[in-house]
Nucleic acid binder design. Structure first.
Lengths: 223, 223
DNA sequence: GGCATTATGCCAGTCACTGGCAGATTATCC
DNA sequence: GGATAATCTGCCAGTGACTGGCATAATGCC
């Protein structure tokens, strides 16, 4: 297995932990590369683990499915977003805070994340199985967000459906802001990719009131 | 295979078509019953096809996956909803029309649908694989709705993100209205289940503006 | 009744995923 | 620095979802 440089300063960790971290990364990076080159369905897990020189059994100790390793970059984002919302102490309107949390989460990710994320989403766009997986993880994230909001606001989401709805709105904004980001970013990989992503997602958040009131008459004022 | 009565008046169809329709239904009904009794993961496809006395190969000519046959009732709803939106000619605010479409779609479904749907959703609530499948089909439905709205409104959803957002809002309302319906319906199967479902989903639609403006200060006015 | 069409069943195969156990590697304690 | 405990990894054999190809059977049509 090719030894790759560590992304952050986790060199302080014990040898065993560093090795595990590296295996995780090599698996995700190699998987992404192979899936993009040959296609997700056309690449078997055997292909992947042979390339990385790891047994199948070991693979499943790092990732719970072929889909998960493909979407590892998105998983990082979801984790960061959930953590950011968990730290939140709310006063004032909730939705703008959820938007801020997203920005903070993205800014806290590692240097090369944006590039990997863009590649991941491109792969998902052409792979039905990954779109389904994406939908599933998004729903899981929604459940976590709502649970956090329940604790923070002291409201039962079964009693007040608005908690669930606002969670959906936030995640919808994330989803379609990201989609627009992918379109604008095209094929190059700029250094300020993350800031563009944050801007696009912010735009989607801001478009929510307009979407709610959408009618043929209001189509003129776009956004 | 036990011969079940036809649900509607499709007796006019040629024999072959009636048989196919019946096989489809027996598969879905038996699957739902077995999954509820023994659990989704614990019931193999072999168990199912042996019970229905159909070969595995034939099963996959009717349903594309084990998940799909389990969620057949939801599939009927999604089809009806998409068809209803496709018939829509919009003037005035879009969101209330999407709510009406849902009501019309539900009212157009067959007599025993509500009972099967409730059972389906209960099963999905305790089966991770089905929750993922549900998320996936919802996303597919969203794509169809947005496409329809694009045609109807003459707007490109890539240019105006509000189209996508309003689709998400509608489907979120459907999702959480349904969740509340399941809670209120509990275990019995009333005759007016469908109207209660429509009412609950309507409530969720109406809660959207309040969700958008949600803040600790507005928590008092629930719904 | 005969022929074209279409549905079904069987077979053999691929691939994702899993439990259990043996062997290797790393951490820890003296 | 060497023994021991904890952990990680690989191998094996298996299950179960899903598929292509081909022969057979049922149905529709005349």
């Amino acid at each position: 297995m090719t030894v790759e440089p560590l992304r952050n300063e986790e060199s302080a960790l014990p040898l065993r932990e560093r090795k595990k971290l590296r295996t995780r990364r090599v698996l995700a990076d190699t998987a992404l590369r192979m899936f993009l080159e040959r296609g997700f369905d056309e690449t078997t897990l055997d292909d992947l683990v042979n390339t990385v020189e790891v047994s199948v059994r070991t693979f499943f100790r790092y990732y719970s499915s072929k889909e998960e390793v493909a979407m590892a970059a998105e998983g990082e984002l979801w984790e960061a977003y959930a953590a950011e919302v968990a730290r939140l102490r709310i006063s004032g309107p909730v939705l703008p805070r959820l938007r801020d949390c997203y920005a903070n989460a993205v800014r806290g990710l590692s240097e090369d994340w944006a590039e990997r994320y863009l590649a991941t989403r491109k792969l998902a766009a052409r792979t039905p199985a990954l779109r389904v997986h994406h939908a599933g993880t998004t729903q899981d994230l929604h459940a976590r967000l709502v649970e956090t909001l329940e604790d923070e606001l002291g409201v039962d989401s079964r009693e007040d459906v608005r908690l669930r709805l606002i969670g959906e709105m936030a995640l919808a904004s994330v989803r379609y802001g990201t989609k627009n980001w992918m379109r604008t970013r095209g094929h190059r990989g700029d250094a300020d990719d993350t800031e563009t992503l944050i801007t696009e997602v912010g735009r989607a958040f801001d478009a929510l009131p307009g979407a709610l009131a959408l009618s043929p008459d209001t189509l003129a004022q776009s956004g």
